[in-house]
Simulated assay, not measured.
Amino acid sequence: MILILQSKATDDQVDHVIEKVESLGLKAHLSRGTYRTIVGIIGDESKLSEERLRSIPGVSEVVPVLPPYKLASLEAHPEPSVVNVSGVQIGGGHLGMIAGPCSVEDADRMHRIAKSVRDAGANLFRGGAYKPRTSPYAFQGLGEDGLKILREVGDEYGMPIVTEVTDPRNVELVAKYADMLQVGARNMQNFVLLTEVGKTSRPVLLKRGMSATIKDLLMSAEYVLSQGNPNVVLCERGIKGFDTITRNLFDVAAVPAVKALTHLPIIVDPSHATGRPDLIPPCALAGIAAGADGVHVEVHDCPEEAKSDGPQALLPDQYQELAKQMRQLAELFQKTISPLPEALA
């Protein structure tokens, strides 16, 4: 960590800064320039609080040398992490192909959609049993009944299950049925929820908040990692923009930007990012080309009857064509789509 002192800092203030640092068992390295005086701090920075350092008279700026997301950073783990979701690998050249409807509906429909996306090449099935909705009057999901349907469908078609958990009180229940716990965009900074999913052994799919910076996303991942759960997959699903032509702004540049900062895998969700079926395929392919470790796509066999987000879902035959293109692109970039686990398939 580096402390940049005010240009008018007195000798007494400089001495006080050094004394404060050394009182914590750290070393202070003083460098006086023509216009700036800098104090470099060497040692265990966990003993320091940036807020307290800024409050010391004479200190102008506090500049961390290491990122605050220590466990998520490349410094902590130089090699890309590979997250194993009940046999399906995501990261390190392995692509996770997540597909399914926005919400869990009746069992027959879930079976039809699961079979179609599995046959197309998806290796993880998704569906929301608990739905955080803007309106309290909108469909909120089937709860545990939905989880039971998901588990039944996953077992039938040999696909690990991804579903969202929205309440810290439901983490244990959802983990009982799901292979991967999703923390949605609205809950990305629900730190109590992040702490609870971090205590489980289930892999976590963490979606970027609609107004969140990349640093915000990585700090949220740090909450999960700090609880002992190393299996976090990030998801770029669109951020707030000013243009209304798409549902959100698909920040495809976030993929390589994130990979320059963290070892965690990152996938893209063009369904929520664009909200338009005609834009989902090109954006999905752009995500893979940018280095994404997978693609999350909503699929429904009758979007006009969907309980939620029907307008942004692909039809099964549209997903089949997209999956074919994604496989071809994956081969071009020498990546593999992780096969379904033999124990389930």
Rank of each mutant, 00 (worst) to 15 (best):
M210D: 13
T200F: 06
M188A: 05
F191W: 07
K176T: 15
D179W: 00
T195R: 14
V183H: 00
M180S: 06
V197D: 01
L205E: 08
R186E: 10
P203A: 03
Y177W: 03
M188T: 13
Q182D: 07
G198C: 02
M210S: 13
Q189L: 08
G184V: 10
K176H: 13
Y177Q: 04
V197F: 07
G198D: 00
D179S: 05
K199F: 04
T213K: 07
L205V: 10
Y177R: 04
V197C: 10
R202D: 11
L194M: 06
D179F: 04
M188L: 03
M210T: 14
L205F: 06
N187I: 09
V192R: 02
Y177I: 10
A212K: 10
T195G: 15
L205D: 07
T195V: 09
A185C: 03
R208W: 11
S211F: 14
N187L: 04
L193E: 01
T213Q: 09
M210L: 15
V197K: 07
A178D: 05
V192I: 11
A178C: 06
V192Q: 09
A178N: 00
G209C: 06
A212F: 11
K207E: 13
R202A: 15
M188N: 09
A212W: 11
F191L: 14
R208Y: 12
F191T: 15
V197S: 08
T213S: 15
R202E: 12
K176W: 01
F191H: 12
M210V: 15
Q182V: 13
V197A: 10
A212Q: 10
Q182R: 06
M210K: 11
T213L: 12
G184H: 05
L193M: 07
M180Q: 06
K199V: 09
G184K: 00
T200D: 04
V192E: 13
N187T: 01
K199Q: 10
G209V: 10
S211E: 13
M180G: 03
M210F: 15
S211Q: 14
E196T: 09
V204W: 02
L181I: 11
D179I: 05
T195M: 07
L194G: 03
G198Q: 05
Y177G: 05
A178V: 09
T213R: 06
F191P: 11
Q189D: 08
F191S: 11
R208E: 13
Y177N: 02
M210I: 15
V192F: 00
M180L: 11
L194T: 00
K176P: 11
G198S: 02
V192H: 05
M180R: 01
V183A: 01
M210Q: 15
V183L: 09
L181D: 05
Q182L: 10
K176G: 07
R186D: 04
Q189K: 06
N190H: 07
K199C: 08
